[in-house]
Design a protein around this nucleic acid. Structure first.
Lengths: 338, 338
DNA sequence: CTGTTAGCGCTTTCAA
DNA sequence: TTGAAAGCGCTAACAG
C-alpha cells in the first residue's frame, strides 16, 4: 500500500523545502506574462523531475481546504435521460472541464423534493455555483442558495422571480415558426399538446401558440391546448389521440419531445398515417422524428449557446465580475426539417 | 459575505469545546447498537440546536483531508447520451447516494484518449473507486488504476485480462433468444449488424449469433455479420440497407440499439415495410421500436442487477472485504415484445 | 462526559 | 531565490 506522495516527499528527495515545491507546482503565469514565483531554473527542473518520478498527484482536498475553493459546480436538470438535457449536460461538462471545474449532475425529475435533496447534497460537497432548470416548487430552495451567497444561473425557465441570470429560448418565436409550418401547408385545424406543469418554458410555448393562432385570425374557440400531467403522458396520450383523430385535427404542435414521442407511438399504433392524415411539429430532437416521410420537423434549441452563455455567466458571478441580479438572456431556436 | 460557520463557531456559541461538537456531528451508531461517543443528552441537544440555528454545513474538504477518504466514485461509460448508459448512470448514482457516495461521470465515446483524460481528472479528484465500461485501448489506463491500488469494477465488457470483477450480460444466451425469435417465425435468411469495434460485448453477441445459427443447422456461408465503424454508422447503414433488401434478407438482428435505430431510419426512408418485408430484433431499448406493428422486440439487459452488483462489489473492494481479483458475474437478459 | 492537541497536505506570508 | 511557519476545518487519540 504505497501511501500517496506529497510535496513533502518531493521536497525530501529533491533536497529543498516544501514551499519551493509548492511554488513550482503552482508556477502560474500572471496576466502580465510574468511568473508569480521566481524559482531557479535548475531547481525547478529537478523538482519537476522528482515529482514525475514519484508520480505525484496533488491532493485536491488539501488544496481546497487551504484555498477555500473547490472548483466544483452543481448542475440540476429536469431529466438526464431526455436527449435534450443529456446534450446540455455533456456540453456544460465539456466547457467546465476546460476551465478547470468538475461538475456534479442531478436530475430533479420535476420533483421539488428531489430538487431540494440534490441541492443539499451538492452544498455538502461545497459546490461554488449552480446552473439549474428549476422545477415547480423549487423557489424556496433557490432562495436558500442565494441566501448562502452562492452563485446561481437559471436555464430553460424564467418564472422564478429571483435575482439570477436566466438563459432561455424565445419560445414565442419558436412556436410562431412551428405553427407557421402547418398553416403554410394550408392546414386549418391546428391544436397543441402540452403539460399541466406551470413552468415558463411550457407556458411560454403555449402563449406563443395562442398568440400566433390569434394573429393568424383563428377564432378564439379554435385555439385548443391539451394539457397532460408530466408523470402520466403515456396513458394520457393514449386517451387523447383517438379524440384528436375523431375531431379531424389536421395539425398538432408539441411543447416537448417526450410529448411528441408519446403521441407518435399512439398514433402509429392506431394506424394513423403521420404526416398525411395528420401533420406534426415536434420540439427538441428525437430519433423517431426521422422515421416518417417527410420527417417530422422540430424546433431545435441552440444548446451550444445556452451552455456557453450559462457557464460564462456563472463564472463571472463566481469571480465577482458581475453581481447576482435578474437578467434575461433570450436565445433563438431554429426549425429543422430534414 | 457571511463566512461559513465551522464547528469552532458552534463551540463558541454553545460554550463547549470543538471536540464535543465534532463528536455530536459524528454521532455514529456502531454495529453493536452503541454510540461511538457518549455525550450528555442535554449538551448534545444544545449543540444540535446551535448548529441548526447557525445553519452549519460541515466542510467536506477538511473532513476528507483528515479522514483520508473522499467518498467520491468515478463512473466511466461509453456514451451517456445513449439511453442504456443513461439508465446505468441514473441507477448507479441512486445507489451510491444512499451509501453516502458522490459520483463523477464521464463518457469515453469509445476513445481511449478521452478515457485516459477522464481517469486522470477523476484521480485528481481523489475518487475512491471506479466502475467503468472499458473502450478499446483502455488497458494501460486500467492497469494504471490498479497499480495505484484503487478499486476497479468493470461492467458490460470482459475482455480486459486484469484482476477486476466484471459484471456482464450473457450475450450468448441473449443472441440465442434474438435469433430464435426470427427462426420461430419461419424465416430462413437471417443476418446480423454489428460494430467493427473489438470489445467483448460486441464480439460476444456476434459469437452468440454464429453459435445459434450453427446449432440451428444454417450452413456456414449463410451466417453473415456486417460490421460497421462506431463513428460512422449513419452513412454506413445508408449503404448497407439497400444491399440487404436487394438480397432479400428476411431477418436482421442488431448488436446495439444505435445500430438498430440507424438501420430503421434508413429502411423507413427506403419505404421498406418493417416487420413485414423484413423482421428486426433490437438490442437495448429505444422509442423507435414501438412505432411498428408489431413493435420491434428487443433484448433487455437487467440494468438494476448490473448496477447493484457492480456497486456492491466496488464497495466491498473499497472496504477491503474482498480483494481485487478477476471474477466474472454473468447476468441474464430478457426478451421484450410488447 | 468533556477538553486539549496534533496533525491531514497544501498555500502563502514573511523573513532570510 | 529559498525556507520557516501559520493555519484552512476537521477528526481522533489522549488526558482529565
Amino acid at each position: 500500500m504505497p501511501k500517496n506522495v506529497t510535496i513533502k516527499d518531493i521536497a525530501a528527495k529533491a533536497g529543498v523545502s516544501i514551499a519551493l515545491v509548492s511554488f513550482v507546482m503552482n508556477n502560474r503565469i500572471e496576466a502580465d506574462g510574468k511568473q508569480k514565483y521566481r524559482v531557479n531554473a535548475q531547481t525547478r527542473q529537478r523538482i519537476l523531475e522528482v515529482a514525475k518520478a514519484l508520480n505525484y498527484q496533488p491532493n485536491a482536498a488539501a488544496r481546497t481546504l487551504r484555498r477555500g475553493r473547490t472548483h466544483v459546480l452543481g448542475v440540476i436538470l429536469s431529466d438526464i435521460s431526455n436527449v435534450f438535457y443529456g446534450e446540455i449536460a455533456k456540453q456544460i461538462e465539456y466547457i467546465a472541464f476546460q476551465h478547470g471545474y468538475t461538475v456534479l449532475f442531478g436530475s430533479s425529475d420535476e420533483s421539488a423534493q428531489k430538487f431540494e435533496r440534490i441541492v443539499r447534497s451538492f452544498l455538502d460537497r461545497g459546490v461554488e455555483g449552480f446552473i439549474v432548470v428549476p422545477c415547480e416548487g423549487a423557489y424556496p430552495t433557490l432562495e436558500h442558495i442565494l441566501k448562502l451567497d452562492i452563485p446561481l444561473v437559471i436555464i430553460d425557465r424564467k418564472d422564478i422571480a429571483l435575482p439570477a441570470p436566466k438563459v432561455v429560448l424565445d419560445n414565442d418565436e419558436a412556436m410562431h415558426h412551428a405553427v407557421s409550418l402547418l398553416t403554410e401547408k394550408g392546414l386549418k385545424k391546428i391544436e397543441m399538446v402540452s403539460y399541466t406543469m406551470r413552468v415558463s418554458s411550457i407556458s411560454g410555448r403555449e402563449d406563443g401558440f395562442t398568440n400566433t393562432m390569434r394573429s393568424l385570425g383563428f377564432p378564439e374557440d379554435d385555439i385548443r391546448i391539451h394539457r397532460l400531467p408530466f408523470t402520466s403522458i403515456g396513458t394520457d396520450t393514449d386517451k387523447l389521440m383517438p379524440s384528436i383523430m375523431e375531431r379531424n385535427v389536421e395539425g398538432l404542435v408539441f411543447a416537448t419531445n417526450s410529448l411528441a414521442i408519446a403521441a407518435i407511438k399512439k398514433l402509429s399504433s392506431m394506424g394513423v398515417k403521420i404526416q398525411k392524415d395528420i401533420h406534426l411539429v415536434g420540439f427538441d430532437n428525437s430519433d423517431v422524428y426521422d422515421l416518417f416521410d417527410p420527417p417530422i420537423p422540430h424546433i431545435k434549441q441552440p444548446i451550444d449557446q445556452i451552455c456557453s452563455k450559462a457557464f460564462s455567466l456563472l463564472k463571472q458571478l463566481i469571480d465577482r465580475e458581475i453581481s447576482q441580479e435578474s437578467k434575461l438572456i433570450t436565445l433563438t431556436g431554429e426549425v429543422v426539417y430534414r
